[in-house]
Nucleic acid binder design. Structure first.
Lengths: 256, 256
DNA sequence: GGTATATGTTGCCAAAAATACAACACTGTT
DNA sequence: AACAGTGTTGTATTTTTGGCAACATATACC
């Protein structure tokens, strides 16, 4: 496949500048990319003409420019969580063979807003648009554990495994935070186990959760941690797609 | 000044894609930029390789890519002004009930870098990342009046109230300096009035502006001076937070 | 269903643009 | 004052790019 090399060089410069705290000089950039100073200089001028980089006040070091903000923000406004999440739900189905779901928090419950069915699965009715309780579903527990919103409602039982004791639930939630994914072990529906992980946006705010659910016969307790890690990684990739930067979360939680 | 033309073409493609709702095809892009289909195709492939654009699922139309989000977000992280300003924007919303904005000067325009919406407000699309002209917005007039950077561009009209006469604008700017805040009286958008005031840093250098904007029905001409004083005081408090000392400014202006 | 129109991608060679090298201007340092 | 470092500009050479065409694929129209 043909690549326009000078365009590629310009884009490489932008990627380089991303990782430098205080900008970079022409010579420094040229060395990193193994190109001549003069080429770097001209590439930088072009990038600057279009606002993709800008020079520091002393007209020496180059920084990322405001045009990137403009374009990036534009992107955010037009793409909804659901559109973004869909390919990742498919990825989950491909990797686990189970049904995948996307939910957001609404009305102190988990609102299912998308679903991708596994090909081999029995035909189940779509759960999109349904609300589920937070304390006994994997998607709901993610919101409790990572959303910072405590559970005040009564812990209504749905199966004999449903956790109804607040302190037991608290223990489960901190465990959830530690391992990065939540588990529902037949706590809402008999014979169904679920795993879910958090999705963050560009402000490091929890915006939803994705997860899988399947029959206890296939989603066994032996395999559930493997599933959990797959879900966790996929959710992380989706978050990155939404502009989430793990470092942001660190500073945010540090402030709280 | 030398420009790397193929890089420029790639950047132009990104700018084109910003203004298209559902992406654009190779041929369409080629026509807009008066280049050959084949060139457009190769440029797009290069942009796609680096994540600056991506193809729609049907492998046809091109959209802006996630890398722009990553880079744009990175840029935001750099700007500590934004972090400092946030509580003051909330304060403005609390005191006035209107939307509050923070902007900096970039490319001879006002770059919106943060926004806090009033609770009662209709849900408006975020303006973060957008560039606005200086001569007909309150935030922009602040930069002209207090930034010491004269206006040389043409005064393009946006509404019938937009000031297009240089000497009228000059009079407005000195009035702005005297009272300490700038007003936009439906000069950019019909039905919207804005008020803004300058933010200085520890060196007494203008670093940005904060302000509010709201429907002319609520931000009336009778109340606008009250709003102006609130904005001015809040901006002053933020400046103090950034280490600004009013005495510094006096010595600075005396030296010039 | 079959033809016609439009779109996206790939080879090839001439033509044009980017590069390397050097020279130059400028800054801060020893 | 000489020096080392940086950033920019001129010019010839060489590489890359871009136009043209063919090809493959998708979409519209009888």
């Amino acid at each position: 496949m043909a690549e326009i090399q000078s365009l590629a060089k310009g884009l490489k410069i932008l990627n380089l500048l991303e990782h430098s705290r205080n900008g970079m000089g022409t010579t420094e950039i040229a060395k990193q990319l193994s190109i001549d100073k003069s080429s770097a200089s001209r590439l930088l001028h072009t990038l600057a003409n279009y606002g993709f980089v800008e020079q520091d006040e002393h007209s020496t070091r180059y920084l990322l420019g405001p045009q990137l903000l403009t374009l990036g923000q534009h992107l955010l406004n037009r793409i909804t969580l659901r559109d973004h999440a869909r390919p990742y739900l498919h990825e989950l189905v491909d990797k686990t063979g189970e049904c995948a779901h996307l939910a957001i928090q609404a009305q102190r419950q988990a609102l299912y807003i998308d679903q991708v069915e596994s090909t081999a699965a029995l035909r189940v009715e779509s759960e999109i648009g349904t609300l589920s309780p937070l304390h006994c579903t994997a998607l709901g527990k993610v919101m409790l554990a990572f959303g910072g919103c405590p559970m005040h409602d009564e812990l209504r039982p749905f199966t004999h495994r449903t956790v109804t004791d607040p302190s037991t639930l608290d223990a489960q939630l901190s465990q959830t935070v530690n391992r990065g994914y939540a588990i529902d072990d037949e706590e809402y529906n008999y014979g169904v186990r679920c795993v879910a992980a958090p999705v963050y946006d560009h402000r490091a705010v929890l915006v939803g959760a994705i997860g899988i659910s399947g029959p206890a016969g296939r989603v066994t307790l032996e395999r559930i941690d493997d599933f959990g890690n797959v879900v966790k990684e996929t959710a992380y990739a989706l978050s990155a797609r939404l502009g989430f930067d793990a470092r942001l979360q660190l500073t945010r939680t540090a402030n709280e």
